[in-house]
Simulated scan of single mutants.
Amino acid sequence: MSEENRNENLLPVVRKPTELVPVVLPEKHQRFYDKLREKIETFIRDKGINDSVANFILLAPDLFVLLARLMLDKRVGVQSKALAGVAVAYFITPIDFIPEALVGGFGLVDDVILAVYALRKILVDIDESIVREHWNGEEDLLAVITKVVRSADDLVGKKIVKKLEETLFRKK
């Protein structure tokens, strides 16, 4: 089986959106979310980032809040919480493969990719409805995961994607 076919088999099935349940963020999450989103939107506007890359960068606040919520949910197992914790820590850590301190908001692309790879693994272990309950992004979560996985190599290159996978899954 080719690597592309293997990756296709790992992608989640995209379902038609059902009725969305509005998610209200706790105030401390809302403040963080709003600040991060505002910072990203300012970066995109100031740097003239193209819409395609901008759409990926704008996923960062939604993914961060989703992962933080999963870490706090009692229905989520320890292993999945640990994966969510690694992804949250990667968002927060100033030193990563594409550091925000050097390249600004574009540096969030690797954070988004790592978060999505973590979510793929988490969705294997916990019920999809639990994850969806915590998602407040505008697009369907599984469609977002599929889009990011399919675009990862083009966004950051195969070498960085491989390093992100190794970081998350401890492959050597």
Rank of each mutant, 00 (worst) to 15 (best):
Ser2Tyr: 02
Glu3Trp: 11
Glu3Gln: 15
Asn5Arg: 08
Asn5Asp: 15
Asn7Pro: 00
Asn7Met: 14
Asn9Ile: 11
Asn9Ala: 14
Leu10Trp: 13
Leu10Asp: 11
Val14Glu: 07
Val14Tyr: 03
Val14Ala: 05
Val14Gly: 06
Glu19Lys: 10
Leu20Asp: 04
Leu20Met: 12
Pro22Leu: 08
Val24Asp: 14
Val24Glu: 13
Leu25His: 04
Pro26Tyr: 05
Pro26His: 07
Lys28Asp: 15
Asp34Ser: 12
Asp34Phe: 00
Asp34Thr: 10
Lys35Met: 11
Lys35Ala: 15
Arg37Gln: 13
Arg37Asn: 14
Glu38His: 11
Glu38Cys: 00
Ile40Leu: 13
Arg45Asp: 13
Asp46Ser: 14
Gly48Asn: 05
Ala54Leu: 02
Asn55Tyr: 10
Phe56Val: 14
Leu58Ile: 04
Leu59Met: 11
Ala60Thr: 11
Asp62Gln: 00
Val65Trp: 03
Val65Arg: 01
Leu66Phe: 06
Ala68Pro: 00
Asp73Gly: 08
Asp73Lys: 09
Arg75Gly: 13
Gly77Phe: 01
Val78Pro: 11
Gln79Phe: 13
Ser80Gln: 14
Ser80Pro: 02
Ala82Thr: 11
Ala84Trp: 02
Gly85Ala: 07
Val86Cys: 04
Ala87Gln: 07
Ala87Gly: 02
Ala87Asp: 05
Phe91Thr: 02
Ile95Asp: 11
Ile95Pro: 01
Val103Thr: 14
Val103Ser: 10
Gly105Tyr: 03
Leu108Asp: 04
Leu108Tyr: 15
Val109Glu: 06
Asp111Ile: 02
Asp111Lys: 11
Val112Trp: 03
Val112Gly: 04
Leu114Ile: 05
Val116Glu: 05
Leu119Asn: 08
Arg120Pro: 07
Ile122Ala: 03
Leu123Asp: 10
Val124Pro: 02
Ile126Gln: 13
Asp127Trp: 07
Asp127Thr: 10
Val131Cys: 07
Arg132Lys: 14
His134Gln: 09
Trp135Phe: 05
Trp135His: 00
Gly137Phe: 00
Glu138Gln: 12
Glu139Arg: 15
Glu139Ser: 12
Asp140Met: 05
Ala143Gly: 09
Ala143Trp: 06
Ile145Tyr: 06
Ile145Leu: 14
Val148Gln: 09
Val149Ile: 09
Val149Arg: 09
Val149Tyr: 08
Asp154Phe: 03
Asp154Gly: 13
Lys158Gly: 08
Lys158Ser: 15
Ile160Gln: 05
Ile160Asn: 03
Lys162Gly: 10
Lys162Pro: 01
Lys163Trp: 04
Leu164Val: 03
Glu165Gly: 01
Glu166Asp: 15
Thr167Ala: 07
Phe169Lys: 12
Phe169Glu: 12
Lys171Trp: 11
